[in-house]
C-alpha cells in the first residue's frame, strides 16, 4: 500500500509539471490552430536560462521562475510576432515546418554555445526528501515545483475566466471572426497566447532543471509528451491538458514501479491509443461536427 501511495503521489507531482507543458501547447493551438512542434525546445531554453541564472548569478532555480516566466513570455511573443503570425493562414504543413524549424534553430544554437555535454544543476535539496507519514516520502524539489505549478495554473485559470483580456483570448479561440467583430485585436491575442504558452513551457523547464539532465536535445522528449497530453485532454482544452498532464504523470510513475521504468513510455502510448480509440476527440474535447 505504501508503495502504491508513493508512486501515486510522485505521479501527481510530476504530472503537475506535465500539465504546465500541456496547457502551454493547448493554449497556442486553441487560439491559432497551430501545433507548436518547437514547444519542447522552448522548454529547453527555459532550462538553460535557469542553469545560467543559477551558475553565474547563484539564483535558486525555483526563485528564478520570477525571471524565467517574463523573459520566456517576451521570447514567445517575439516568435509569434516575427514568424508565426505570417503563416496563420498558410497550409498546416507549412506551419508545422516553421515550428519544427524554429525548434531546430533553438537546439542547435544552444548546442553551438554550450556544446552537447550534459549539464547538471545540483542544489542543496536536489536529492532531499520529506516524510509525509505511512512510510511515504516525497522528493523535496518535486514537491516545491508542484506547489509552484499549482499556483501558476490557478492564476492562469483566474486570468482566462475572470479578466477581459483572458476572456478575449478564449473568445478568439472559439470564433476568431466573431472575436474581431467584438473589437478584439486577434493578432494581439495570438501574441499573448504564444507568449503565455512559451512562458509556461519555459517555467516547466525551470522547475525540472534541478532533477533532469540539461542538454540541447532534451526538448524532443517534451514536445512529444506535450503533444500526447494535449491530444489526450482534447486539443484546445485547458482543463483537458491539466487532467491529461496529471494522468500521464501517474501512468508513468505507476508503470515504472509495477512494470519497469524501461516500459513506462510504452504504457503511456498504449493508454494514449486506447483513449483515442474510444474518445477520438480526447477526454474534454468536443467532437468536430
Amino acid at each position: 500500500m505504501a508503495v502504491f501511495m508513493q508512486s501515486l503521489i510522485s505521479g501527481i507531482l510530476i504530472g503537475g509539471v506535465y500539465a504546465l507543458i500541456g496547457i502551454g501547447l493547448t493554449l497556442i493551438f486553441g487560439v491559432m490552430r497551430v501545433i507548436n512542434f518547437g514547444h519542447g525546445d522552448i522548454l529547453m531554453v527555459g532550462m538553460y536560462l535557469t542553469y545560467l541564472l543559477f551558475t553565474y548569478l547563484g539564483i535558486d532555480p525555483f526563485v528564478s521562475v520570477l525571471i524565467t516566466f517574463p523573459l520566456m513570455f517576451l521570447f514567445g511573443g517575439f516568435l509569434q510576432k516575427v514568424f508565426i503570425n505570417r503563416v496563420l493562414n498558410a497550409a498546416a504543413q507549412n506551419q508545422i515546418l516553421l515550428t519544427i524549424g524554429l525548434g531546430l534553430i533553438m537546439s542547435n544554437t544552444v548546442m553551438l554555445i554550450f556544446t552537447s555535454d550534459y549539464k547538471i544543476l545540483s542544489t542543496s535539496y536536489s536529492s532531499a526528501t520529506i516524510q509525509v507519514g505511512g512510510g511515504v516520502s516525497v522528493s523535496t524539489p518535486l514537491l516545491i515545483s508542484f506547489l509552484i505549478t499549482a499556483g501558476i495554473t490557478a492564476a492562469l485559470y483566474w486570468f482566462l475566466l475572470k479578466t477581459d483580456t483572458g476572456q478575449a483570448i478564449r473568445a478568439t479561440a472559439q470564433d476568431r471572426e466573431a472575436a474581431q467583430l467584438m473589437g478584439i485585436n486577434v493578432k494581439r491575442m495570438s501574441i499573448l497566447a504564444f507568449g503565455l504558452g512559451s512562458a509556461l513551457a519555459g517555467t516547466a523547464g525551470a522547475l525540472i532543471a534541478p532533477t533532469y539532465y540539461i542538454f540541447p536535445q532534451v526538448g524532443a522528449v517534451f514536445t512529444l509528451k506535450a503533444f500526447v497530453i494535449t491530444v489526450l485532454g482534447g486539443m484546445g482544452s485547458v482543463v483537458g491538458a491539466t487532467l491529461g498532464g496529471i494522468l500521464i504523470g501517474i501512468t508513468e510513475s505507476m508503470s515504472a514501479v509495477y512494470i519497469s521504468s524501461g516500459w513506462k513510455d510504452v504504457v503511456v502510448f498504449v493508454l494514449f491509443l486506447l483513449v483515442l480509440l474510444f474518445r477520438p476527440s480526447g477526454l474534454m474535447g468536443k467532437s468536430r461536427t
Binding site: 477581459d164 476572456q167 478575449a168 478564449r170 473568445a171 472559439q174 472575436a179 467584438m182 473589437g183 478584439i184
Partner: peptide
C-alpha cells in the same frame, strides 16, 4: 461564443 456563458458573451460585447 459557444463555450462561454450568456453573461460572458455580453461582456465580450463591451470589450
Amino acid at each position: 461564443f459557444p463555450e462561454m456563458t450568456v453573461m460572458e458573451n455580453l461582456r465580450m460585447g463591451s470589450y
